[in-house]
Write a protein that binds this DNA or RNA. Structure first.
Lengths: 110, 110
DNA sequence: TGAACACATGAATATTTTATCATATGTTCA
DNA sequence: TGAACATATGATAAAATATTCATGTGTTCA
């Protein structure tokens, strides 16, 4: 909103409104990764696409809970899906997911 | 727990218990980035260390809320602190924070 | 067509998380 | 020492989120 005078130069406020929106989007993105069910799903899909039943089996979780999280992951554009007969096949939307997870693992293992 | 036989090879369950713990740790890490207040603090500190009052001013948030989040960030080892007289100065613990944020930004801007 | 299967979804509940309020702790300096 | 300042913290209230349950929708196949 206002500006600060610092070292003789007018600099915009560190977190201007535009940056603030960007940071909120970032938080939204990380929030998606910040749930163990969702990250397990993402990790599960690294090995290739799977249908809902397979994912439920891998996570040992009930179908409804998994479907709800799949929906959230899809609306976040992290996964995509296609129908194959009775089944819906889910897959990672792009390589960013792998990169971000790898990044996090690296941090943890430091 | 059990193993699956796939393509003639015994492979451990995709999400074995050990991997499961690792994934939960990962979720914990991302959860920290997944809050707008915390990510604003982290972003604020990219420009250099700051005391609590400065951070509060930058975020336009009350001191108690900020302190609570600082505590969480510190317990997650993402920031460190030192005392300087009456003030406590906070700073990013390492470069991973910058990298992870950059990573996320890249994904968003795709 | 209708039964069986695979998945989605709305509502309710349970759980977790965040901000606020009041107050406590630690430091400086007159 | 004690007042003023900077920060931390416990408790509580408020908000957001996840899971469960019941049920709905879409597809296959006999």
């Amino acid at each position: 909103m206002s500006q600060k005078i610092y070292d003789g130069k007018a600099i915009s406020h560190l977190i201007s409104n535009v940056a603030e929106d960007e940071l909120c989007d970032l938080a939204e993105l990380f929030k998606v990764f910040g749930d163990s069910t969702r990250i397990k799903i993402l990790y599960d899909l690294i090995n290739g696409e799977k249908n809902v039943t397979e994912i439920c089996a891998d996570l040992e979780m009930n179908q409804s809970a998994v479907s709800h999280q799949l929906k959230l992951l899809k609306s976040s554009k992290l996964i995509g899906s296609r129908r194959a007969g009775k089944q819906i096949i889910y897959f990672l939307a792009d390589d960013h997911v792998k990169t971000i997870i790898a990044m996090g693992k690296e941090h943890i293992e430091e």
